[in-house]
Computed example of a mutant assay.
Amino acid sequence: MSLPMLNKHGRVGTAFRPAVVGKAPRSTVRVMASASPLTFSKYQGLGNDFILIDNRHSSNPVVTPEQAVKICDRNFGVGGDGVIFALPPVGDTDLTMRIFNSDGSEPEMCGNGIRCLAKFVADVDKAAPRKYKIHTLAGLIQPELLADGQVRVDMGEPILEGRKVPTTLAPTQGSTVVQQDLVVDGKTYKVTCVSMGNPHAIIYSCDGKTIKIDELDKELAALGPKFERNAVFPARTNTEFVEVIDRSHVRMVVWERGAGRTLACGTGACALVVAGILEGRVDRDKTCQVDLPGGPLQIEWSTADNHIYMTGPAELVFSGSVRA
């Protein structure tokens, strides 16, 4: 078995076989001084990477938001976009998910993260592929492990009412904010607002021109925070900039609330397909391929139950322990 090596960005140099949490692999990572090490596994979904902790013995996360910031540091910690906890179930569910972002904030849910959580729990329990009912701050989410290794997630219904996203932008279609003007740095962006249990601002055009990812990509680091913390988004927002390839294929880059630029955002991919359908750019009831910097996701908004379905990978990177 190859030993994983972390580069200066916290990325793994060589892949190796999954290890079960609780059985310390030779690749154990120990950083930061504390009384006792904390066992974890690191998973990634299209490069959106998370530290997973089996916290099912307690309803309280064993790591504080401040500790999560340190653990997520790519130079002095393990490195990741967030820390995800598998907590005891609530009501008629299998478990509860909570997540602390790399800045210590707590989002309602994470699409790539919940695929990683389902894979993590299955690996820990040595369970056969199955469907999980997971309680989140965004409600019930149901990921299903498929035989081919992919994870298909019933993300539930999108929230379209502007004030519930939330945003103070004026509605343009009933109570929904679709292609509303928002001026940032002197440019007028057409914004559609959707919540997948967490807020998203989706942009397909600016100053009357459709988005070109290769051009906008260079501006994302400066532009993203100006959307995330804009006054029209009282709970801050995730922001997706989208280029249409055809009616069932789009490209996107994302600035995530609390994590900044990431390689993938599962809830964002879902939200942008909803926005594309509302704007008449994408077809409903057909699988839409969303190309993210970390790879593709398959998204469908079904008219049968009004639910969004997301399919994509979740993979173990390595397991170890950390002094939190």
Rank of each mutant, 00 (worst) to 15 (best):
W255M: 10
I211F: 14
A314E: 05
P88I: 04
Q142H: 04
L216Y: 15
V12T: 14
F227E: 11
C206S: 15
R130C: 08
D73I: 00
I277K: 02
C193L: 09
P158G: 09
K133I: 09
Q173V: 14
A35Y: 03
D305S: 05
S27W: 10
V31Q: 12
H249C: 05
P158M: 10
E161V: 13
F85D: 05
R26P: 09
C265N: 06
S41R: 00
T168V: 10
P37Y: 03
E215D: 12
V20Q: 13
A259C: 13
V178Y: 14
E315P: 06
H9A: 12
I134C: 09
Q150I: 00
S34C: 14
N230P: 01
D283W: 00
F40M: 11
I84S: 13
R323L: 12
L160W: 04
Q173F: 08
D285W: 09
R130M: 08
T210A: 02
P25T: 07
Y132D: 08
M5L: 11
V153W: 15
F76Y: 15
P293I: 06
K212S: 08
N48D: 10
R251S: 11
T172G: 02
M5H: 12
D246H: 08
D154V: 06
H307I: 04
G79F: 01
G294F: 01
K209Q: 12
I211D: 15
G47T: 03
P171C: 13
R251K: 15
Y309Q: 04
R11G: 05
Q142P: 04
L220F: 09
P25E: 07
F50L: 10
G208E: 01
I114K: 07
V183G: 03
V250D: 02
V253R: 15
G149V: 02
C72S: 12
S59G: 14
K209C: 06
E144F: 01
S175R: 03
N238Q: 11
N7L: 07
R56S: 07
G80N: 08
K209H: 10
Y43I: 02
